[in-house]
Amino acid sequence: MSELPEYIQLLKNGDRLAFNELVEKYQHKVFNTVLSITQQNQDVEDICQEVFLQIFKSIKDFRGDSKLSTWIYRVSLSKAFEFERKKKAQKRINYFKNVIGFEINEIQVPDFNHPGVTLQNKEKAAILFKALKKLPDNQRLAFTLIKAEGLSYEEVGEIMNNSLKSIEGLIQRAKENLRTILKPYYSK
């Protein structure tokens, strides 16, 4: 249903019922993706709301070159990375203010705990998510979409505009890098 041209036309015409259906279908996927990328429990819902508002605004520009789901993932990822960039910029400003003497009471962000993690797995998952943050963006993205979101290599290839081979390569390198990052932690 969600990929039918008639349905997409309804969305382009601003049909609220069709849009509600889209929200119902994709809200958890968008939520899980944004959460895994940003690793922020507090802001994730606001970012997801922004994602859907953006989808509502720019659906008329959707040309149908890719699947609707692929396009929705792309919008979600661009919003997630935009949020990360803003956070990093804010951190830099706070650091600079600290250096020049302004006192900033920076709130210490606790380790990220994914809500879908079982209790016995909690510690390991927290370590893994911390290590994921140190990976290059494309490796982190491919690894997160395949492992946390459960997408296929083909789907990730479409989202990232990369071939199947390059996605396989990215996953391979991501695993190697994660092993290197985790090594000092476990050899203590």
């Binding site: 958890h28 996927k29 968008v30 092993r179």
Partner: peptide
Amino acid sequence: TLNSIDLINRAEA
């Protein structure tokens, strides 16, 4: 630790 991500359930809004 690497495989722990496979045991994660999808987070829901």
